[in-house]
Design a protein around this nucleic acid. Sequence first.
DNA 1: ATCGCCTCCTGCGCGC
DNA 2: TGCGCGCAGGAGGCGA
Length: 262
Amino acid sequence: MLRGITPHCLDKRIHHVELRNRRLRWPITRSLPRYLKDQKFIRISRRAKYLLFETVNGGFLLHLGMSGSLRVTGVGQEFLKHDHVEIQFTDGKVLRFNDPRRFGCLLWSSKDLSDHPRLRGLGVEPLTGDFSASYLKSCFKDRKMSIKQALMDQKIVVGVGNIYVSEVLFKCGIHPVRRCGRISVQRLNRLVESVKIILADAITSGGTTIRDFLDAKSKPGYFSQQLAVYGRENLPCIRCKSLVRRVVISGRSTFYCPKCQK
DNA sequence: ATCGCCTCCTGCGCGC
DNA sequence: TGCGCGCAGGAGGCGA
């Protein structure tokens, strides 16, 4: 994602910004076109599920929600349904933000973006050394919530969504309703390993490649045929053939094998 | 402090 | 064939 966008947008003069629909999760500031005109993005980075676009005078956080996507195309190309923002560069390229469900957001701030309230208090990045069994042990100490909820808590670790949490817990053999504070360090080690493998896998197989950004609509980054348990209620577990169960935890479907996961 | 539940929105798949 | 309903997801925010 980041690598696909950056070469087309970094250090390019912004010629014009078109706001076609401001009503996302939070309204996009009306002033965005004025703020960005004649500026350049001097840094484009990522934190958790946010992309950070910075100019010398401020910048914005962009969250894709679950249905959002970014495209790089040429000026004058036909708009797609749900293209909400277009940023035109002086070289004739444009960046478009499309989000059918409008769960995403674009938040302008004139202050240091890394200090933004939306980023404050976020947990560690899962694919770094900060995410470890000892880290989880300290987070989970005296906590009663289920391991499923704990893994999806962005204040603990970022990037684990509802689909992948089922996959992770299946892979390491932990029951989704198990209390997080009552898991041995040995099992936490397996859990950490599973998170890293599942997420790295997801990025490789479903993550958007650089090529996808040029005039192609990118699809959500997961493919149901590669999911081991998610969505497989009453189908045989791929490991032991027991029937996969579905439970609702904090309002979200959760899938697990009653025999493989304890 | 911590946790459970509701909410936003659109597209899709299902059943009638 | 067509319509309408219910569900799916990330994460803030509120009430208990």
